[in-house]
């Protein structure tokens, strides 16, 4: 299990990286390497050119402002885990990131790499979906911002053009004191979840839910927002019955069927985890 031959490029600037990406056929960007390198070792992919982003400056940062946070594409998952700013402003990401692989893989793995790889069960794309992330991408014709809903096109397929690279991810802020719920069911710690759910809840002055977000991941090819549930929650006080109703709104989601679990199991888990994530978010928001 050794990588096939390729040419290696290690640009130091974003324009240089984009120029390389545009000038070669069959080129792949290498970020943290925690997904691409196994695929190379197993010879599932045969790129002619590997463009390593690890020396590109200006891609490794966490910026917080009034609108939310912006995270550079090459920011290591471990730095996200250790960020006090994120723990305060973006508790969902802080919690979810601890479930991404293991210490050794988070030390190398990146925010952008995980999002661009878009594994159906990965935590980072789920958080992005839950928070209406905006993905900044740069290509030969300049920069564009892609809402997550338009970014995650299908099973491990993004809206990035072959000559585009992901530069950063913006997560619009939720009100201070919002509650975040994160529930995943995997066979072992650090595994890709069989299914997971993320919930965000803002409570208004009246003690009722003012804003809600509910996302299911790992069930279908991409994370999905359960909008019907979100709408139904607003104006309600959290309770078992309310969360049951919200969870039922998951309905029969499009679900993957694989060696780990049949589709029906994933559909069932979606509801179970949705309810638990909502209850957790409510509890944390209310407190």
């Amino acid at each position: 299990m050794k990588p096939p031959p390729f040419e290696y490029h290690d640009p130091t600037t974003i324009p240089e990286a984009i120029s390389l990406l545009g000038s070669y056929e069959n080129a792949r960007l290498l970020a943290g390497g925690q997904s691409l390198m196994p695929m190379l070792n197993m010879r599932y992919v045969f790129p002619d050119h590997l463009i390593d982003l690890n020396k590109v400056g200006g891609l490794d940062y966490i910026n917080t402002d009034a609108d939310g946070v912006e995270i550079g594409g090459m920011t290591r998952q471990r730095d996200i885990e250790f960020s006090d700013e994120l723990a305060e402003h973006c508790p969902l990401l802080s919690e979810a990131i601890r479930h991404v692989g293991h210490i050794q893989t988070r030390n190398r793995g990146t925010m952008g790499g995980s999002l661009a790889h878009l594994d159906p069960a990965a935590e980072i794309p789920m958080v992005c979906a839950a928070m209406d992330a905006r993905i900044r991408a740069q290509g030969p014709n300049g920069e564009r911002t892609i809402p997550i809903a338009e970014f995650a096109l299908g099973f491990m397929t993004t809206a990035l053009a072959p000559d585009e690279m992901l530069v950063s991810v913006s997560l619009p802020g939720w009100a201070s004191g919002h509650g975040a719920g994160f529930q995943e069911f995997g066979r072992r710690h650090g595994d890709f979840a069989i299914a997971s759910a993320a919930a965000l809840i803002e409570v208004g002055g009246d003690g009722k839910i003012a804003r809600a977000s509910l996302t299911i991941s790992g069930v279908g090819p991409v994370p999905v927002r359960i909008e019907e549930a979100e709408e139904g929650l607003v104006g309600e006080a959290g309770s078992d019955g309310v969360f049951d109703t919200a969870a039922e709104a998951c309905g029969e989601l499009e679900a993957l069927d694989d060696i780990h679990a049949p589709a029906s199991y994933r559909q069932h888990l979606a509801k179970v985890l949705a309810k638990r994530a909502l209850a957790q978010a409510w509890e944390r928001a209310a407190s």
Binding site: P3, D10, Q34, N41, R108
Partner: peptide, 10 residues
Amino acid sequence: ARSCLTLAVQ
């Protein structure tokens, strides 16, 4: 870090 997932050049 996993040294099997890192290239020597890196």
